[in-house]
Design a protein around this nucleic acid. Structure first.
Lengths: 193, 193
DNA sequence: ACCTGAACACCGTTCAAGT
DNA sequence: ACCTGAACACCGTTCAAGT
């Protein structure tokens, strides 16, 4: 009896603890951070977790579902600056900066996310409520809020993707100036409404 | 002798004519149009051309080089509206529309291009010279032209990627309005310089 | 319930051989 | 010069079997 249980545990886990969805997700994120989307394979992930590749499928339907999962949690966990009562220009700038900072922490993940936007289209995300709030503050008429938000998000994501993909100068100071110009452009544009 | 040549030709080509780089490229584009980047594999491409997969490697170094090639030719062939003397706002609008139209013709290809921007960073491309010309016309000071151009391009590509990836409304009329708003935003923003 | 090995249908690419 | 088949090292995923 005792022998059987011991043998069972020894066999079912070449690892210390049983596999967790949480653990799978964080390891997947790490692999993506290290080597991009192309660096994440189910087999590599499994071997990183010291587990048979097929064990993963007990916790996740398939690779796409896994990617969706880690993108969704990243989007949900994104920290947006709170409403501190400052003028909308300032708040918009802060939100853009937060988004930028976030994306740079896990570039490959946000790259994937931006090219598979089902994940980010959930309107309850902190990102969207913050953006909509600021646009209303800026005086964008209610029926235009959502559209304008989509467009602004597309702009920012274009900027970030360009940066992630190396289509921007390398010098961080230069990037900072680019970012300033970009945000200024948007704010100027909005002010014209 | 004659027999040998005939047999040779028959064997070396299960197809009518010998393989061409041109032919490879256009078929690759078609496959991408039909099924996205993931729908293009060297093996599928070869079978589409009625050829052994390995024959491709005689014309192209590898898959990435092939993708680069078709993206580069697409970028070079892009038609940009000529300088017709109209105000810069109008010309910028037309350029954005041309870019948009172009991208929609081969969505997967432009999607890949935007996430692998080495291809489009060649400054001699018609796209860039047209954009720079219009920015100068708009009064952007010379040392800012290139930076502003990069940012505007990032914005437009973000918009287009969002559209390609379905993160925009489906109704074409709605998209048209989105596009108008986006271009207005940019023009307003530039006018504030 | 959770894990596994063998197997299947795909990849991109190398290499030695064919004409 | 151009093409090929067999082979290698990878994929994602199914399925039947193990505890």
């Amino acid at each position: 009896m005792a022998d059987a249980t011991i043998r069972c545990m020894a066999e079912r886990a070449r690892r210390g603890a049983p596999l967790t969805l949480e653990e799978i997700a964080t390891t997947a994120v790490r692999l993506m951070d290290e080597a991009g989307v192309e660096g994440l394979s189910m087999r590599k992930l499994a071997s990183e977790l010291d587990v048979n590749p097929m064990s993963l499928y007990h916790h996740v339907e398939n690779k796409e579902a896994l990617l969706k999962l880690i993108c969704a949690t990243a989007a949900e966990r994104m920290r947006v600056p709170p409403d501190d009562g400052s003028p909308w220009q300032e708040q918009l700038r802060e939100l853009a900066l937060a988004y930028h900072r976030n994306a740079k922490e896990h570039p490959a993940l946000w790259g994937y996310l931006h090219t598979h936007p089902e994940v980010i289209s959930h309107r309850g995300l902190p990102l969207w409520s913050a953006l909509y709030r600021i646009l209303r503050l800026a005086g964008v008429p209610e029926p235009e809020v959502r559209r304008t938000g989509d467009i602004l998000h597309a702009f920012v994501s274009g900027f970030i993707l360009a940066e992630i993909n190396g289509h921007m100068p390398d010098d961080p100071e230069e990037i900072e100036r680019n970012y300033d110009t970009a945000v200024h452009l948007i704010i100027n544009g909005l002010a014209g409404f």
